[in-house]
């Protein structure tokens, strides 16, 4: 395994362990955060604050170094546009998150905790991802060649 993948494996393990320690592996607890009219559980807010502290420091360090420690260069999202795709996607994601209480990280981490329902959720999630990719390919195919080339290059 290459060094970048070893780092990613360590980061994944730390991330999954953090989800389990924080109670975020429990869909019921996450839903309780969203349930402001019921027995509201603020734990998720503490998790967010805890996660944002090291990341705020990390972004400051990032600004001072020319390249990452292991990878040849930084490869980060550069889009700044607020558009309907972003907000529409966030609405659809939020609905799914509210229905079950799971977002992608906890769902995948739960494969080791409660495999049957987690596998059902993750399979449906991957199908939803594939459906989006399918929609994009169809849209690109139906559009004019120039527009199709532009869509593919994004």
């Amino acid at each position: 395994m290459n060094r970048q993948a070893l780092i990613a494996l360590a980061a994944g393990i730390l991330f999954g362990a953090g989800l389990a320690v924080s109670g975020m592996a429990d869909p019921t607890r996450v839903r309780a955060f969203l349930d402001v009219a019921g027995k509201w559980d603020p734990t998720l807010a503490f998790v967010m604050v805890g996660a944002i502290i090291p990341m705020t420091i990390a972004w400051r360090i990032k600004a001072k170094i020319a390249k990452p420690l292991v990878a040849p260069r930084f490869d980060l999202p550069g889009t700044t546009r607020l558009d309907a795709k972003l907000l529409g996607g966030a609405v659809i994601f939020g609905i799914g998150w509210g229905v079950v209480g799971l977002c992608p990280g906890p769902a995948i981490a739960d494969l080791a905790i409660h495999p049957r329902p987690a596998l059902l959720f993750v399979s449906a999630m991957l199908a939803g991802m594939a459906a989006y990719r399918g929609c994009r390919l169809v849209t690109a195919y139906l559009a004019a060649p120039a527009a199709a080339a532009e869509t593919n290059s994004q």
Binding site: V100, L120, G128
Partner: peptide, 16 residues
């Protein structure tokens, strides 16, 4: 669970 999973998968790709 399946409806939630589908929405999470589709929505996270659309919303990046």
């Amino acid at each position: 669970i399946m409806i939630g999973g589908l929405a999470v998968g589709f929505g996270t790709q659309l919303g990046a």
